[in-house]
Design a protein around this nucleic acid. Structure first.
Length: 286
DNA sequence: AGGCAGGCTTTTA
DNA sequence: TAAAAGCCTGCC
């Protein structure tokens, strides 16, 4: 039907249609500051990189989505990545608009966000990089790292991409190479984290399922990992939905909207989900 | 002892 | 020029 601007190379991608009745807004997830390797394609689909995999997802409306994978891969990889077993509508339903109008508005406005189950190692490096930087700058550095030492792959549309670097690949980089990724003073933090994980001193898999506070303590033994970065790794990499990262925006929310204190007990064990609504909502506010 | 100011690299708006 | 999904050090 419509020509592709003359650049219509044949697509070999497999497509399957998935119906998702629960919250699932690709644009909001992409903008929520938890993933830095999603890219919107000119055709409106999203290219999503996860580990060494690449997926294209597109919203078709009415809760239907096109996924560029077979059912087996959807079931074994992406259902988990998108946390589709969790009911985010029900989590939002725990907010009483009368008791907490601010959080209710934030959640209503940012409806569609989910907490992705991302790779713990990738989250550790990404959030070490994130400190004192805005989201576009974080994206740039992560992408540079991946191009520098991530395995080169080809996606189902024939384009090249780089997987996130392995701990070994990253720990093998020289200081000068890391500097080229515009990491600044975070260079030594990234290198130390890569050495710790590659050398087996820090076993990220062993942190799964352990209490959030214990996991954060272990992460904070790394230089450059404080409370904020550790809680991001806990929430986005270990999927501890009660972890509550306090960045500058969330601190503003707590100061401005909850001067008498925020009711953490009321929202356990989903404090991290509500944190995402508040973060995204406040960041977009004029 | 624990709370706080200042510094740190670079990009973005 | 200030601020950015912060952390570390040194000082009191």
């Amino acid at each position: 039907m419509t020509e592709d601007g003359g650049a219509c190379h044949e697509r070999m991608e497999i497509r399957m249609i998935v119906h998702i009745a629960d919250d699932f807004d690709l644009t909001r997830i992409a903008g929520s500051g938890q993933c830095f390797r999603w890219k919107r394609c000119p055709d409106g689909s999203w290219r999503i990189l996860h580990g060494d995999r690449c997926l294209f997802v597109e919203s078709l409306g009415d809760g239907n989505y096109s996924f560029s994978c077979r059912e087996a891969e959807f079931d074994s990889v992406w259902r988990d990545y998108f946390d589709l077993a969790e009911n985010y509508g029900a989590i939002r339903g725990r907010i009483d608009p009368g008791k907490d109008p601010f959080l209710w508005t934030a959640a209503e406005q940012e409806k569609g966000i989910r907490i992705l189950r991302q790779n713990t190692w990738e989250m550790l490096i990404t959030f070490i990089i994130s400190q004192n930087r805005n989201i576009p700058a974080i994206r740039g550095s992560v992408e540079s790292l991946c191009e520098l030492c991530g395995e080169e792959k080809t996606d189902c549309r024939g384009a090249r991409y780089h997987a996130f670097p392995s701990p070994d690949a990253l720990s093998a980089l020289s200081g000068a190479q890391l500097k080229d990724c515009r990491l600044g003073y975070r260079c030594r933090f990234v290198h130390a984290a890569a050495e710790a994980v590659a050398g087996g001193k820090l076993d990220l898999d062993s942190l799964r399922g352990v209490p959030e506070e214990q996991a954060c303590r272990a992460l904070m033994e790394l230089p450059g990992v404080g409370v904020k970065v550790a809680s991001c790794v806990s929430l986005f990499g270990l999927h501890n939905l009660n972890s509550f990262p306090r960045d500058v925006w969330v601190k503003r929310v707590l100061e401005n909207e909850y001067p008498a204190g925020y009711p953490f007990e009321r929202y356990a064990p989903y404090n991290g989900v509500f944190q995402q609504y508040m973060f995204a909502y406040y960041r977009e506010k004029p």
